[in-house]
Design a protein around this nucleic acid. Structure first.
Length: 424
RNA sequence: GGAGAGAUGGCUGAGCGGUCGAUAGCGGCGGUCUUGAAAACCGUUGAACAGCAAUGUUCCAGGGGUUCGAAUCCCUUUCUCUCCGCCA
């Protein structure tokens, strides 16, 4: 959520920046400014009335104490009209505030100045590439054939038990999942992130705080009975640990990591890139979350990018890092780097991580603040990134490490976790 | 699921219709003393909105009500604790 003062004082700049995200803010920003001005005016009027009312009440109290009950009764009559006025102003104020909030919550975050202009994924900017493309034999297969051949994953069983997009992992396929999760968590912990095991369902307040609601309503699974949402990412519960928290400056940065299953309805994306592990409704991910001082958040973003890059290097995958253009960025983000790994058998890039700085967008919604050395209270910055999401990593590992005779090789760094060197 | 008790500032905990944004202790910050530290002593110490400021308004779990006036009374929701039941 953007800060009202910032909108009031930088209207033109806000509109220009929103346009980079292809969001036409002309009408809604004017609306917000008008409502905010009205809010202030109403608040001032109400404060005035209440001040009078408080003064009269105090007088009555004093008169009563002096046993001058007749004078007190006379004073009481004075309050009637004031009370009526106050009531009306209060109703007006809460009405304005409700409208204002509903408007504010629909405005996306402003992109950072370095965000490239562009509308489609093709216009994202490649920051750098790394890793080697494997040399596969002519008979190499896509992962959805390998998983069947080696009995690692059954998409059919998932279909039977639940529906499309809920695979069943078996044997070495299941073990590989656990190995990756442990490997990613250990790396995050070694980098100073505190491991968290969060709830997999959150309430609406949490959904609003990190920006999934109301923007992504309909993309999350909803548990009707209790009004809970299945988390689309551990970012939601983990960041919300610090909802309504006032930190001391020296407590920053806060670094947390979490493994969780993630649930996404992916409504509207049927038919495209959904084969095998490419797009699932339930998947595993290790997430890193960081709360940071505003002056340091972009250095921290770079550090988080390096951390993710280190994981891909360790796994020996060919990857590239993209700076997302305005049109491809998420609602809440100010700057996002996407990581893609190259799937040699599918001959395409698969997105495996997204690392973003949200600046104060989330912290403003969730009142996550810190008190600086001068006692002044400021909003902290929030950042998060996948480190990493499993399914497409698994897809790339299976495809890129396949051989024609011996089976699929396990990268060296994972062998202590899997307990086996080959999938045969 | 049933029965009872409770929710107050960073923490503990008083207040139970008016001068209460709230007593006290701990913690935090500043100071005196000290070579330094501890102890002791003194001072200070919640947040939001409006305002250059003075100041005003609001907040004692959330929402509603009674009253000239509510942390205090009533209703309601949520959560916590104790006991019973059920159960991984």
């Amino acid at each position: 959520m953007l800060q009202l003062n910032h909108i009031q004082n930088n209207k033109d700049d806000v509109l220009v920046r929103l346009a980079i995200k292809h969001f036409d803010g002309t009408k809604i920003i004017d609306d917000i400014i008008a409502h905010d001005t009205d809010r202030k005016k109403t608040q001032a009027e109400l404060d005035n009335i209440l001040a009078k009312l408080n003064a009269v009440s105090k007088e009555i109290g004093q008169l009563m104490a002096q046993k001058k009950s007749e004078e007190a009764e006379a004073k009481k009559k004075e309050t009637a009209s004031l009370k009526e006025e106050a009531k009306q102003l209060e109703e007006k104020k809460s009405q304005i505030e409700k409208v204002l909030h509903d408007l504010l919550v629909r405005v996306p975050n402003l992109p950072h100045v370095s965000v490239p202009n562009g509308r489609t994924p093709e216009e994202n900017v490649v920051v750098r590439e790394g890793g080697e493309e494997p040399k596969l034999t002519a008979d190499s297969k896509p992962h959805w054939e390998l998983t069947t051949q080696y009995n690692l994953i059954s998409f059919e069983l998932g279909n039977k038990i639940t529906g499309a997009g809920f695979p069943v992992y078996m044997g070495k396929g299941a073990k590989l999942q656990r190995a990756l999760i442990s490997f990613f968590l250990d790396k995050a912990i070694a980098a100073g992130f505190l491991e968290i095991q969060p709830p997999l369902m959150v309430n609406a307040d949490s959904g609003y705080a990190t920006g999934q609601l109301p923007d992504k309503d309909g993309q999350m699974y909803f548990v009707n009975e209790d009004g809970y949402y299945l988390i689309p990412t551990a970012e939601v519960p983990v960041t919300n640990i610090y909802r309504d928290v006032l930190l001391k400056e020296e407590e920053l940065p806060v670094k947390m990591c979490a493994y969780s299953q993630c649930f996404r309805r992916e409504a509207g994306s049927y038919g495209k890139d959904v084969r095998g592990l490419n797009r699932l409704h339930q998947f595993d991910k290790v997430e890193i979350v960081q709360l940071e001082h505003p002056d340091k958040s972009y250095a921290t973003l770079d550090a988080m990018v390096s951390h993710v890059e280190g994981l891909l290097n360790a796994l020996g995958l060919k990857y590239r890092i993209l700076r997302l253009c305005g049109g491809d960025m998420s609602f809440a983000s100010a700057l996002t780097y996407d990581f893609e790994v190259y799937s040699a058998a599918q001959k395409k890039w698969l997105e495996v991580s997204s690392v973003s700085n949200f600046e104060t967008f989330q912290s403003n919604r969730m009142k996550l603040r810190y008190k600086d050395k001068n006692g002044k209270i400021n909003l902290a910055h929030t950042l998060n990134g996948s480190a990493l999401a499993l399914p497409r990593i698994v897809a790339a590992l299976l495809e890129n490490y396949q051989t024609s005779e011996e089976g699929i090789r396990i990268p060296d760094v994972l062998r202590p976790y899997t307990g086996f060197d080959w999938i045969k």
